[in-house]
Design a protein around this nucleic acid. Structure first.
Length: 626
RNA sequence: GGGCCUGUAGCUCAGCAUGGACAGAGUGCUGGACUUCUAAUCCAGUGGUCAAGGGAUCGAAGCCCUUCGGGCCCGCCA
C-alpha cells in the first residue's frame, strides 16, 4: 500500500457517505494535509457543498465526519471536522508504515500505469554537429532524458531520438573554415574534435565573414554542393559532422544519456518524405500557392493570428520549417518510412543505438509513436505551433504532437566576465556563433576537480580509482540536478561559481543522504528482516520518512501527466530532507532493542531503495561513499 | 505593431493547472550542535503591502480585466 491507496480509500468512503446523506455529486479534493497538526490527509468537500446545501462548510464536514467515525476502515484512525471547514484524517501508522516499507522493496515500486504500454517518442538533444555541447544544450538533453525515464516508469513504451541537422548552414561554415580558413584538419593534441570545431574553427570563420565578403560566396556554393549529397564536399561535410557527433555523444553518454535512434536531416532531405508530405498538404488544402504580394510564387501556410509562413520558396526549394514537417510526420508514423536502419553502436547501458540510412541494409525498424514529444527551447514556439497544427490536422486528433518548450540558459555577468565580456552587470544569451558559451565538458571537469578534493578530504582511505568514480558521479549529479530542479518556463542564469556549490538544494545533497543510508546498512551487518510488525517506528521522524517514501507513485503520475520533470527532483530532495532529519535525531544501530534496530534498518533500506529508484529517473547515480 | 513567457524574502526559486486552515524551501546573515550510524549534515533566529490597481467569490499569491517592469520570438536564414 502507498499513500495513493490511502487517499483512494478515503475518497471512496466519503463518496459513499455523501450518497447516503443525499448530498449532490461533486469533484472534491483528497490530498496531504498542509500541516502535521491537521493530521495526514485533508478533504475540502465541506467548502464545495456549502453553497448548494446552504450550510456552513464546518457543518457539512461535521456531518460527514460523524458518519465516517462509524466505520473508519483499517487505514484511518481518526477523523476530524475542523472549524475551518476541512475534513481531516489521521492514518493508521503501524499499518501504513508496514505496507509502505514492504511495497517499497519491490522491483517496480513507484511504477504507475498511465501509458498502458502505448508508444511514445521523445526527441531531444538535436544539436547542430559543428560544435561541442554547452550548458544550454545540457538543459535540453537533461529535460528530454529525464522525461523519457519518467514516461517509461509510467508504463509508456518510449523511443528516444536525436535529430542530427547535418545539412545546414553551420555545416557549410565549418567546411569553409577547413577549406579556406587555414585550419588544420586535426585538433591540437588533447583537444576534443567537437571543441576544436566549435571553439576555434566556427567562431573564427564566423568573425571573418564580416571583413571578407568572398567567404560568404564560398559558403553559399558549398551549401548548394551539400544538398546533392554525392559531391566531394558533401562527403567531406559528412566526415566532419560524424566526427563531431561522435564527440558530442561522448558527452551525452558521460551525462548518462542514451538514445534509440539518430535521424539525419540530410537523409530526410534526400528521401521522398518531403515530397509525400508536400503532396498530402496540397491535397488536404492546408497550403496555398501565393499569387501576389511579397510571397508571390511561394507555397505558404496560413496561420490564424500571424503572418503567412513560406514553406517553398519561389525557386522551388524548401525552407527550414518545411524540413521539420516531414520529420514530425515520420515520428508520428503518418508518412511511409523511407529509411533502413543500421547499428551505430552499443551504449554504456547496453542499449543499442541505431541510425537511419537510405542504403538498403535489409533492416526495417519502427521508431514512431502514437504520441511525440519534441524538446526544443521556447524560442521556437512559433514554428512548433505551426507544426503542431499540421500534425493535428494529419492525425485528425489533438495532442499527438507536443512541443515541450523550455526557457533558455543564459550566462551570469560574472561568468561572462571570465569570457572577457563586460555585460554591465546583466546576464547574457549564449551564442555558439559568437563564442559566448560554457562547454558542458568543461563544467563537468571543473566540478570533478572540486568533488574529487571534497571526497578525498572525507575519505582518505579510498583509492584513486574509487575517488575518481565518486567525483564523476557527484559532478554529474550536481549538473543534472541543477538543470532540472526548476520549472521549464524559468530562465536559468548559469554562474560557474554558483554551480560549484554542493550544499543545500543540490544533487550532491541528495546523493549524500544515500551514502549515509548505505553506511548504516553496511555497519548494521546483517540483512534486515522485513517480516515483522513496525509498530515501534513511532517518532515523527520515522513516520514522515515512511510517508514520504509512500508518495513515490503519486509523484511519478504527476510528473508524467504534466510533463514536468522537476517534480521528481523535488521529490528526491524531499526524501533526502526527511531522511537527514531522521538521521540526525534517531539512532538506528544503537537503538534500545534488537527488534527496533531491525525495524529501523528496514526503514533505512526502504528509503535507500526508493531514493535510488527516484534518482534513477533523474539519471543520477548515488555513490556509496562520499 | 503583434505573439509567447515571466514578476512571491537581500539573492535563486516552490506553491498557481484543480481558489480554502498562520505564504514555504534553498542561499545569505546571526547563533548553536561533531570522543556519536560520514557536519556535502542538523537545529534555532533573521527576512514577505505574493509587481500595482480593479473585478467576480463567503474566501485570491492562485481566476478575469487593466497597467507597469523584465526576457524571448515575429526572413523566400537555419
Amino acid at each position: 500500500m502507498t499513500l495513493r491507496l490511502l487517499f483512494d480509500d478515503i475518497r471512496s468512503t466519503i463518496q459513499k457517505i455523501c450518497n447516503n446523506l443525499g448530498y449532490p455529486q461533486t469533484e472534491f479534493d483528497v490530498s496531504e494535509a498542509s500541516r502535521p497538526e491537521f493530521g495526514d490527509v485533508s478533504c475540502n468537500i465541506g467548502f464545495l457543498l456549502a453553497k448548494s446545501l446552504k450550510k456552513r462548510p464546518s457543518e457539512i464536514a461535521e456531518s460527514i465526519a460523524n458518519e465516517y467515525k462509524k466505520d473508519k476502515g483499517k487505514l484511518v484512525t481518526e477523523v476530524n471536522a475542523h472549524s475551518s471547514g476541512y475534513l481531516n484524517f489521521t492514518a493508521n501508522y503501524p499499518l501504513l508504515t508496514k505496507s509502505v516499507i514492504q511495497s517499497s522493496v519491490q522491483e517496480n515500486y513507484g511504477q504507475i500505469d498511465i501509458g498502458k504500454n502505448s508508444k511514445i517518442v521523445v526527441e531531444h538533444t538535436s544539436v547542430n554537429p559543428n560544435k561541442a555541447l554547452h550548458v544550454g544544450h545540457v538543459r535540453n538533453i537533461i529535460i528530454g532524458d529525464t522525461m523519457a525515464r519518467i514516461l517509461q516508469k509510467a508504463c509508456y513504451d518510449v523511443r528516444v531520438l536525436n535529430y542530427v541537422d547535418d545539412s545546414g548552414l553551420q555545416v557549410a561554415d565549418i567546411i569553409v573554415g577547413f577549406r579556406y580558413g587555414g585550419f588544420s584538419r586535426e585538433p591540437p593534441k588533447g583537444q576534443k574534435f567537437d571543441h576544436y570545431c566549435g571553439d576555434v574553427v566556427y567562431v573564427n570563420i564566423t568573425e571573418r565573414y564580416e571583413t571578407d565578403t568572398t567567404l560568404a560566396e564560398k559558403r553559399s556554393l558549398i551549401l548548394k554542393e551539400l544538398e546533392g549529397g554525392l559531391s566531394d564536399t558533401a562527403k567531406f561535410g559528412d566526415e566532419i559532422t560524424r566526427r563531431v557527433l561522435e564527440e558530442q555523444l561522448k558527452t551525452c553518454w558521460r551525462l548518462g544519456v542514451t538514445y534509440d535512434c539518430l535521424n539525419f536531416e540530410s537523409q530526410i532531405v534526400r528521401s521522398k518524405l518531403w515530397k509525400d508530405v508536400f503532396e498530402k498538404m496540397k491535397s488536404m488544402g492546408m497550403i496555398e500557392l501565393e499569387k501576389e504580394g511579397k510571397n508571390e510564387d511561394c507555397w505558404v501556410i496560413r496561420t490564424e493570428s500571424e503572418d503567412d509562413k513560406v514553406l517553398v520558396r519561389s525557386d522551388g526549394t524548401a525552407t527550414y520549417i518545411a524540413k521539420d514537417i516531414p520529420y514530425a510526420a515520420w515520428k508520428l508514423g503518418i508518412a511511409d518510412d523511407p529509411f533502413y536502419y543500421k547499428q551505430y553502436g552499443t551504449q554504456r547501458d547496453g542499449r543499442i543505438l541505431w541510425e537511419t540510412t537510405l542504403e538498403n541494409t535489409g533492416t526495417k525498424l519502427n521508431f514512431t509513436g502514437d504520441a511525440v514529444i519534441t524538446v526544443i527551447d521556447s524560442r521556437q514556439s512559433r514554428l512548433q505551433k505551426i507544426i503542431t497544427k499540421i500534425m493535428s490536422d494529419f492525425k485528425s486528433k489533438e495532442g499527438a504532437y507536443v512541443h515541450l518548450g523550455y526557457e533558455s540558459v543564459t550566462l551570469s555577468a560574472d561568468t561572462a566576465k571570465t569570457l572577457n565580456l563586460d555585460t554591465g552587470g546583466k546576464s547574457i544569451q549564449m551564442s555558439g556563433r559568437k563564442g559566448i558559451y560554457v562547454n558542458a565538458d568543461y563544467v563537468l571537469d571543473i566540478l570533478g576537480v572540486k568533488t574529487y578534493e571534497e571526497a578525498k578530504k572525507r575519505n582518505p582511505d579510498l583509492n584513486e580509482v574509487k575517488l575518481v568514480q565518486i567525483s564523476e558521479q557527484v559532478a554529474i549529479g550536481a549538473l543534472r540536478y541543477s538543470m532540472i530542479k526548476q520549472d521549464l518556463d524559468k530562465i536559468i542564469t548559469f554562474d560557474m561559481t554558483e554551480s560549484l556549490s554542493l550544499e543545500g538544494d543540490t544533487g550532491p545533497y541528495v546523493q549524500y543522504a544515500y551514502a549515509r543510508a548505505i553506511r548504516i546498512l553496511e555497519k548494521g551487518g546483517k540483512a534486515p528482516n522485513f517480516d515483522v510488525s513496525f509498530n515501534d517506528l513511532k517518532t515523527s521522524y520515522e513516520t514522515s520518512l515512511a510517508k514520504t517514501i509512500g508518495k513515490f507513485d503519486i509523484e511519478v503520475k504527476d510528473a508524467a501527466k504534466n510533463l514536468s520533470p522537476k517534480i521528481i527532483a523535488r521529490y528526491c530532495y524531499d526524501l533526502a530532507v526527511t531522511f537527514n532529519a531522521f538521521y540526525e535525531h534517531v539512532k538506528v544501530l544503537t537503538a534500545e532493542s534488537e527488534a527496533l534496530v531491525n525495524a529501523r534498518l528496514c526503514l533505512v533500506y526502504s528509503f535507500k531503495e526508493t531514493l535510488s529508484k527516484s534518482l534513477y529517473l533523474l539519471g543520477i547515480n548515488a555513490p556509496e561513499r562520499m
